[in-house]
Simulated assay, not measured.
Amino acid sequence: MKLSEFRIALAGEFGAAYGEVVLGDVALEAFGGRTAREALDAGVAPQEVWLALCAAMDVPPARRHGAHRREPKDAAGR
């Protein structure tokens, strides 16, 4: 996931305005309490930040691939 895809997924899941609040306010346990913005600024991969943010915000697993992104294939390639 590229940073631009992260931003699209963030806005798609939470809305543009609330997505910015989530990005800067939600402490992510997976990154020692850093926010998503702080984790990204520290060089954590956008995909890792996205998944941690989804877990923290109880985003259903079916939507964790990100808005406007194709669902990942399963282990069998389907």
Rank of each mutant, 00 (worst) to 15 (best):
V49G: 13
G12N: 04
L53V: 14
V44G: 05
V59M: 13
P60T: 13
F6D: 02
P46A: 06
P61A: 15
R7G: 04
L40N: 09
M57V: 13
F31T: 04
L3I: 08
E29R: 12
A30H: 04
A56P: 05
F14K: 00
R34L: 11
L3M: 05
V44N: 07
D58V: 11
F31S: 01
A17E: 11
A30W: 05
G19P: 00
A56N: 06
K2G: 06
A42F: 00
E29N: 15
P60M: 08
A52G: 06
R37F: 14
A9S: 15
L53S: 09
Q47K: 14
A36R: 03
G15H: 02
A56K: 07
E29S: 14
A27T: 04
D25Y: 11
V44I: 11
E38C: 05
F31P: 00
D41H: 07
Q47H: 14
V59S: 15
E13D: 05
L53D: 06
A9C: 03
V26L: 01
Y18L: 05
E29W: 10
V44S: 07
F6V: 01
G12I: 04
G19V: 00
E20I: 00
E5L: 05
G15R: 02
V59C: 12
A27R: 15
I8Q: 07
V21P: 02
L23A: 03
S4H: 08
T35L: 04
P61F: 14
A27E: 15
V22T: 08
A17G: 05
S4W: 04
A36W: 01
L40G: 11
E38N: 05
V49S: 11
L23Y: 00
G33V: 00
A27Y: 06
K2W: 12
G33A: 08
D58S: 14
A42K: 09
G43M: 10
A39Y: 06
L10R: 01
G43T: 05
E13H: 08
P61R: 11
R7L: 12
Q47S: 15
E13S: 10
S4Q: 11
G33M: 09
C54P: 09
V49K: 09
D41T: 12
F14C: 00
L10Y: 00
E5C: 04
S4L: 09
G33T: 00
D58A: 12
V21Q: 13
L23V: 08
V22L: 01
Q47F: 15
G15Y: 03
W50L: 15
F31C: 00
W50N: 11
R34T: 11
G33C: 07
A55K: 13
L51Y: 08
Y18H: 13
W50T: 02
E13R: 09
E5Q: 10
R7A: 08
F6I: 01
L53C: 07
A11H: 05
Q47C: 14
A45W: 15
Q47W: 15
F31R: 02
K2I: 14
E48F: 14
A36G: 06
L23W: 00
A27C: 07
G15E: 01
A9F: 01
